[in-house]
Each structure stands twice: as C-alpha cells, then as structure tokens.
Design a protein around this nucleic acid. Structure first.
Lengths: 356, 356
DNA sequence: TCGATTTTTGTAATCGATTACATCTTGTGA
DNA sequence: TCACAAGATGTAATCGATTACAAAAATCGA
C-alpha cells in the first residue's frame, strides 16, 4: 500500500469537463459563471458533465486570473477577548453571505506579530483588511497601506484619509458613565484603564475626563489605575483600592473583564458592591450578565459593528463608495444592573462597622 | 481627482525585477526561494533590484504553480465559546510559525453553515482542515473527505480511518468527577448535558455513567438535564432543579458555561454553593476563576491541544506521517476550587430552614 | 432562399509565478 | 592551453482558470 494512497484523488480540470461535454473550456466557464450567455441545450449538456465528473473549479486559478481573492483579512488584538470574538461573528455573517472568506490575524496582544500580516496584504492574498487595532500594521519600513488595499477600521478609530471608521460612541458613553455615577451621589471616582496608548483607551479616558468636568469635579476627585484590557488589570486595581484609606465609591472600568476582576477581588475582602462601591463596566459581554452581582455596563452593538464594518469594506472593494464617505459611530446602551447604586453613607467604612 | 486614485498602486511583477537586475525571471525566482543556487554577485544584484522596486511575489500565482495554498481551514462550532477561541490561539501559534495562514469556519452552532466550507476544501483553497466539530462536514452528497485533503479532528474525536484525533481524556475525567463527588458524600447526582448528539457530549455522558456505576450507584441516582454548551442550558437546568422536592446535591456540568449559568440561577434563590449543592464544571475557561464562588472544574490543555493538533496536521500535509499513526489523548486536570464541598446534612432544606 | 444581424461557440492570450531542460560560464587538472 | 565537469543562467512550458476576439451558427425579414 502506497504511503500516499489516501491522498490520491484525481483532480478534475475544466478541460476534462469540456471534453466530456464536447465543448470548449470557454463554454464550460461561461455556463458556470454566466449561464445566460449560452444556449439552454449546451447549458444542460455542460451541467450534466459537471455533475458526472464532480468538477469544482480550482479557486487559485480563478483568483489569479480574475485578480480577486475573495478573502478578507481581519486583524484583532486578541481573539480570546469576547468583544473581538463577537465582532468577528458579525463580520463572518456579512462576508459569508457575499462569498468572502476570512483570514484571521490574531496579534494576541503582541505587536511584533503584525509583520506577518503586512506580508499577507502586500502579497495580495486578500482583497481588503478589517483592522480592530486602532493603528495600521507595519513591517520595518513598509506599512499595510502600501498594499493599496481597502482598509476599514472598526472598534478603534484610525484617523487617516481614506480609511473609514466604524466605531461606537466610546467617549460619549464614558462621559455618561461619570454623570450617571454622579447622579447616584458619588463624589470620589476611580478609573480603571485599558491598554495604555491604545486609541480606545484614549477615547474612553477622554470621555471620563469630560464627564468629571461636566459634573463639576476636578482632577483631584479621581484616581486612575493602569493596565491592559484583561481581568487581572481589575484585580490589580482592586488591590490598590483596598490599600486606600479614603476610597473612591464610583468606579468606571474601561472594559467588562477588568470590572469583573475588580469586583471579584474587592468582594473577597468583604467590600460590598454596590453598597460600598459602585462599579460600571464597558462592552456588555455575555459573561457580564452571569457575574454576581450582575454588572452594570454599556452594551456595545458588537455583532452589528461587525456586520456594518464588513459591509463598508465590501463597498470599498467593489468600488461602490469613496472611503471618505463613511465614518460611522454606533450608539452604545447603558445596562443598569446590580453593581451600581446610590451612595449610602459618606463614609461607608463606618457603615460596615455598624452593620457587623 | 479620479475615484479610483487611492487604489492606484503599480503592481510589480517578477519580470520587472528581472529587467531591473538584468537577469531572467528564473534567476529572480531562484534568488528568492533557493539562494544557494545562484552566484553571490547575481544574488546581490537581484536583491538590490527587489529592494529598489519593493517587489513582493504574488502569492496567488505561487499557489497555482506550486499547488500549495499555505492555508489551513479551521472549523469550529462556535467562535464566541472561549474553549474554541483558546484552541484557536494554539493553532495560530503553531501554524504561523510554519508560515501557514488560518481561514476560519465558524458554524455558530448552525450545521447548515458547513456547506460553504465543503466548497472551500473541494476547491482547494486550503492544504488541510482542522475539525473541532466531531464530524465531517457535508454538502448534499459530497463530504469534505472527497477533497482528499488531510484532516485532523481536535477536541471531538472522529472515528474514521485516516483521520487522527487530538482530544482530551473527556471520559476518564468525567468518571473522576463522579467519583470525586461521591467521595465528598454525595448520593444524588445531576448531569447537565452539552449539545445532544455531539461526540463530546457522548463521551462525557458515557464517563458520567461509568462513574455512577463505578461508585456503586444506579441510573435512579441521577437526573439529566439537556441543552447545548451555553450558559442558558445551566439556567434552564437550575430552574428544573429548583422545582424539585428531593434535589440532587452533586452536579456535573458538561461545560463551564452551563455550570456558571446553573450556579448563578440557584444562588438567586438563596441556594448555597457548595453548602447546599456542589457543582463541578468542565473546560477550565478563564471566567471560571472569576465566578463567585470560583468554579471547581477540569482544566483542558486548550492551548496545547491547538498546538498539537496543528502540528499533526502539518505533518500530514508534508507527508511526514501516516494519519493512522496518531491519535493523541491529552490529560485534563481537576481544579478543586470553591463550588464543591462535602455534604453537610442529608436534608439540606431543613438546614436552610434552621439557618433562617 | 439569401444576406444581414444577432447569438452562440471556439481559439488562444493572459494572470504571475516556478521549474525542467537547454545553453552558456566558469573552474579544474593534465 | 584545452577538454571536460560542475555550476550558473536563460528559455519556455506549466499550473487552471477567464475572456477578448474571431469564427461559426442561428435567426430574421424581404
């Protein structure tokens, strides 16, 4: 038994089908791609041959000839982050419908991994790129822009000519978050950041500062804890929080994962949420509805974001629009759940003491 | 200003480089793919021309000629499931290293979506397929096997000749779970299933039954609640559980998400975990460490699973092994955390009453 | 029935690389 | 210096489709 036998599958080419049907390859091609161009009788003849032979066109040859790969590259900072996974679902729904495939570029939060995807774009393995990163990947002196491929920025904006942005109203939402906390009576705030230097973090922090100002507070009325968009950032923030004498009572976390990490950690030290401290997250991941207490947060329309972004990219690919026509900001929605509440006492530590 | 101007990027072909360097295209190709075959002087000449022109080979043309796409298709039941996302990370790490790309096939728990990916394989857009589904996708009369492509089943076994399995010891672990609960004194059990008909569910339930038998119990000593591998399955199970008079005290959930859903729901009704009911999950997703209480579960080596599976597939693609040589079962590890504990009272309802 | 027009089909170039084979250079030993 | 082997390079076929253009067939009106 040959070592290769299991792989031996005879390849059927268009020429084989043509011979079988007694026509030229051109006719077979036409039957398959533009049936109206051929006589009904020929059409049936060819289709019969296609069916009998089980012919499926070699898509690589098609791609070379038509100069369309029917693939789109999606670059995400981290695939295990449910936010990106959910966006990807939307992208997938939209692209699959149009016959496009997705090649994933997972950076896993390591920027050096982007080089590989620059090559991918430059070597024309895709027709367009969706960036969830907030910046254009580079490899040495070359940028992905050099590929001339249509690029759409999603989730995190890229402010460059020719690149449409499909994002959410981060800044507005974060401002609202502060106002919401202020309305509940909070006077001292905490801000748990996302990945420093990222555009999303920039927007959300800007919104936070605006909210602080709008509510009549100053820079002295809040603290900022720093770290990437992961659980452990919240845990670290909580540990700093727990050390404090004069703790903030209204916490905004730039992502749900951090918020969850924070809550988990402070509750372990018998700090009550929301009685002792209110926490509000951002993202609206599914898991935020399964924490205890359930997380108050802003729900991003993640699936829609994916659909819309993919749709814009397809329009660019098909030259149906100019890139500057589009910059979409989808609204987010505040989900008031259980981790936020009114301030009970000015000094909640004395409250706790009396409760024990 | 032309509507297309922003896309106008002159394509540099190998012939351009050849002309620039004053050599033939064959030489350019050799310099790039097998530098030892050319004189140093020519090599430098060509590389200079490559650099000056910014040439990057058109990968579609390469693929057509070499008949290698350098892409692998990964089919997963649901991308937003952290289990698959984590496996995908491992796959990505391994494949990227070898220069392969990943095309994702997300079924989103809808089997009808698989047809598209059968086409993808049949039209030779990929060199191999990783299946996380436990079955071979079909489209009408044609199966993905007809493509003759190497296939590796991961996570969920496929028992067919020529398909290596890279899975975890589901069955053994589930058996252990029951034994563990029995050792803690539990006598009435609950089993929250995964997707019915799936091979993973089959294995885990088989292990559960084995465990029941091994611990000396019978079919009458446990209940089974059915549903897919999602949070809400656990919630539904919890609702059935809450209706019962004579509740089980030891619950095994076929996935962490269901376990988390279950716990969340019963705690809302003041059922204590683990004092009133012990719950053990399966998967070891990151969230399971952020629930309250933290979930006792079996940690699957998800990242490793991905790496190993990808590695096996690469070996198949490169004909470095026969598919029947490999079926790997990775061990899982019990993480004893906070949702399991000894049975306190035979009738925990009376306990609760006295506590109130 | 014939010629003009329209529709259908076929021939061959093309996409952009790789590579078998042929040819030309270079190097080596006598 | 010459013959011959080894090494470097060039020529042209090839991968498998699509499609411009040419040629053939069908349709139509007079």
């Amino acid at each position: 038994m040959s070592r290769k036998r299991w792989r031996a599958v005879k390849e059927i080419r268009i020429a084989d089908v043509a011979r079988l049907a007694g026509v030229s390859t051109a006719t077979v091609s036409r039957v398959l791609s533009d049936p109206d161009k051929v006589r009904q009788k020929t059409h049936d003849l060819v289709m019969e041959a296609v069916k009998r032979s089980g012919y499926i066109p070699n898509s690589t040859a098609q791609k070379l000839r038509t100069r369309r790969t029917m693939n789109v590259l999606v670059i995400a900072p981290r695939l295990t982050n449910p936010v990106f996974a959910e966006i990807l679902r939307g992208v997938d729904d939209e692209l699959t419908q149009s016959g496009y495939g997705i090649i994933i570029g997972n950076l896993d939060n390591r920027r050096e991994r982007e080089a590989r995807y620059v090559d991918l774009a430059l070597s024309r393995q895709v027709d367009g790129v969706l960036l969830l990163t907030g910046y254009i990947p580079e490899k040495g002196p070359r940028s992905m822009r050099d590929s001339g491929l249509p690029i759409v920025a999603m989730c995190a904006a890229i402010h460059e000519d020719g690149i449409p942005n499909v994002v959410v109203q981060d800044r507005e939402a974060t401002r609202q978050a502060v106002e919401y906390l202020a309305r509940l009576g909070h006077r001292r705030f905490g801000y748990i950041s996302g990945t420093l230097g990222s555009i999303i973090e920039f927007e959300r922090f800007a919104g936070f500062q605006e909210g602080i100002a709008a509510a009549g507070f100053s820079q002295n009325d809040f603290l900022r804890w720093e770290g990437p968009f992961v659980f452990s950032t919240g845990v670290t923030a909580a540990e700093a929080f727990l050390q404090m004498k004069d703790r903030p009572t209204g916490i905004f976390a730039a992502c749900d994962e951090s918020a969850i990490g924070f809550i988990k950690r402070v509750r372990a030290e018998r700090v009550r949420v929301p009685q002792d401290v209110s926490v509000i997250g951002f993202d609206g991941i599914e898991y935020a509805d399964y924490t205890e207490p359930t997380l108050t947060t802003f729900r991003q329309p993640l699936h829609e974001l994916g659909c819309v972004g993919a749709d814009v990219l397809l329009k660019l690919i098909h030259n149906e629009m100019k890139p500057d026509d589009w910059s979409i900001r989808l609204p987010v929605m505040l989900l008031e759940r259980e981790t936020t509440g009114p301030v009970l006492h000015k000094d909640y530590k004395s409250l706790r003491r009396s409760a024990v």
